[in-house]
C-alpha cells in the first residue's frame, strides 16, 4: 500500500480508536486485496511503510463482499460498482479477505 495512505490509516486509527474505524477496499484482484487487508491488520508485509510492524487489526472489507454490500443502497451500489462484479473475481477476493479477517481482525462484532 502507498506509504502516504499507510500514514493516514495509522493516524485515523489513533485519532478515532481502531475499534471505530472500518477500511473499505476496491482492489482489482484477490492477492492485492489480501495484501492491502494485511497491511491494515497485521502490518505492512513489504516492510516499507509506516505500518511496518504495526498491527492495527482494523475491520476491513472489499466493497464487493456480500456482508458490506448488503448495507449499501442497492441502486447506488449498482450504479457505482455493480458492473465490476462481472469483471472482478469476487469469490477469490472474498476468500482472501475472509482469511485475513479470520487471522488478524481484532474488532469484529
Amino acid at each position: 500500500m502507498d506509504l502516504e495512505n499507510q500514514r493516514r490509516v495509522k493516524e485515523f486509527a489513533e485519532q478515532y480508536g481502531p475499534e471505530n474505524v472500518v477500511v473499505l477496499l476496491g482492489a482489482a484482484e484477490g492477492e492485492a486485496s489480501g495484501l492491502a487487508a494485511e497491511t491494515v491488520t497485521a502490518g505492512d508485509p513489504t516492510y516499507a511503510g509506516p505500518l511496518t510492524g504495526v498491527s492495527l487489526g482494523l475491520t476491513v472489507y472489499h466493497v464487493c463482499e456480500e456482508e458490506v454490500k448488503a448495507e449499501f443502497d442497492p441502486a447506488v451500489y449498482d450504479e457505482q460498482v455493480g458492473m465490476m462484479e462481472m469483471v472482478l473475481d469476487v469469490d477469490d477476493i472474498a476468500s482472501e479477505m475472509q482469511s485475513i479477517r479470520d487471522e488478524y481482525c481484532k474488532y469484529l462484532g
Binding site: 490509516v9 472500518v22 477500511v23 482489482a28 472489507y61 458490506v68 448495507e71 462484532g109
Partner: peptide, 17 residues
C-alpha cells in the same frame, strides 16, 4: 451493522473500484 456509525477509510484502486 458493519458500517453504520463508523469512521470509514477507503483505499480504492484505479483498475478495480
Amino acid at each position: 451493522s458493519i458500517l453504520n456509525g463508523k469512521k470509514v477509510i477507503i483505499i480504492g484502486d484505479r483498475d478495480g473500484v
